[in-house]
Amino acid sequence: MNQILAVENLSKTYQSGEKSLTVLSDINFEIEPGSSCAIIGPSGSGKTTLLGLCAGLDEAGTGSIILDGKQLEKLSEDQRAAVRNASVGFIFQSFNLLPTLTALENVMVPLELLGKKNVKPIAVDLLEKVGLGDRMHHYASQLSGGEQQRVSIARAFANQPKILFADEPTGNLDQETGETIEALIFNLNKELGTTLILVTHDTELAKRTDRILQLKGGKLIKDSASATSEKA
């Protein structure tokens, strides 16, 4: 089994008092290494929940998720954190930089967590790649939204992840900046051979990926890969 991500019979239900709310129901798909995939769907369809589960940020209700060969439901939260550190990168809609750290330090953190030494040149190199060579000592609050997202991209690629999860990466940006960010993500994705999973409302952005998974009401209603094969 060579898939970087395999999701089998995945369901997720939230309990609120006596009421239960099923946000994901019987989801199945596999992602090949190095490919890109978009998860689309209307608000409340379970996109972000699915992304969170695939990245090991939450525990699945039923079903199984295998990320980089590790069956996530069998791991503790700290073990899942180790998997994230070793294999996963994140880009978020609201950037999620650590506000008390400079841009450079934000990029250094995943490498430091891996126990690597002399990580500063790597982080500097990455920041220069995203065009922030002159802003690396600034704090998040001193950067514009686009700049923050570029730091976030540099941080996401710092530990050379096998898979990158992006949640609405251009959602908080104007069109022009959004396009720059998109270009950066796809270029780095190709250059480093990283698998890319992105959640988006933007159909144009989704079209740039190899595969589109469409959710509605917590169900996977369309998988472009199987649709293509159906057509074929």
Partner: peptide, 16 residues
């Protein structure tokens, strides 16, 4: 809380 959650995403353990 947010900062801790970000660190957890990046691979920090709960104790760290």
């Amino acid at each position: 809380v947010k900062s801790v959650a970000i660190l957890r995403c990046l691979g920090a353990s709960s104790l760290q």
